[in-house]
Amino acid sequence: MKFAGTEDYVATEDLMVAVNAAITLERPLLVKGEPGTGKTVLAIEIAKALNAPLMAWHVKSTTKAQQGLYEYDAVSRLRDSQLGDERVHNISNYINKGKMWEAFESDQRPVLLIDEIDKADIEFPNDLLLELDRMEFHVYETGETIRADNRPIVIITSNNEKELPDAFLRRCFFHYISFPDADTMADIVEVHFPGLKKNLLREALSAFYQVRDVQGLKKKPSTSELLDWIKLLLAEDIPPEALRSENKKDLIPPMYGALLKNEQDVHLFERLAFLNRSQKG
């Protein structure tokens, strides 16, 4: 089982090493990086490359660690007892399996994605220590212990909104997806828009990196914004000349709404463009 990127996903070498280490040593891989650099997609692509089932557990601020294991549905049991349903005598009828349980039970070695772990309560990672380490947990209601037959490949993503506890970090491999350089970016664009005109790509990339270099942007555009933007450029059939940098000194790139997602950033950009124009004139 080795991961080497897929045709839809350009994996850098360091990422491949980290992923393969996590696969071989059966330990979780924690992935951090700017929003929009493909953290969540990574898990999907690993599953695709290894032909493994994917279980995605999307964490929200209200998610409890227990919900990933199982939940006991007391209400339907109560209702069934009212209606005299036979099911009521067996408590295991009311245990709803969570994503981790599903992953533990899978016949084939699955990929378990725990998405945006930093969104949850600060104690959330601590509550999963044992489960991720031993890949087993105990169900109090039925007294059984669930053990993973095939230790899942666990991919955990974080946006750095909260710091994760040391004990948790020690159990993981860590990879920081740094922002791709221009060459890698060209590869990525090629994967998504095969046969894109060379000059359009060049102009678009240089315009994109110029926007990223503007000081003081609240939210720098990232890979996913670039891909959206190129999609728009193609749809509108914008000629590469329109992106040329001479123009860009006094012009905002066309369709900039796809790149800049923040009102203040758009204002900042328009102001800069205005300043440039007035300096020239």
């Binding site: 070498e13 360091d14 090493v17 980290a18 393969n20 280490a21 996590a22 071989t24 040593l25 891989l29 924690l30 951090k32 040391d166 970090l169 020690r170 993981c172 491999f173 860590f174 990879h175 920081y176």
Partner: peptide
């Protein structure tokens, strides 16, 4: 896992030892 290349060893040790960017 590191093969015998210095770079792979670098990536591997980085993934193992560093937990914070």
């Amino acid at each position: 896992l590191a093969g015998y290349s210095m770079e792979d060893f670098y990536y591997l040790s980085r993934a193992c030892m560093v937990k914070d960017e």
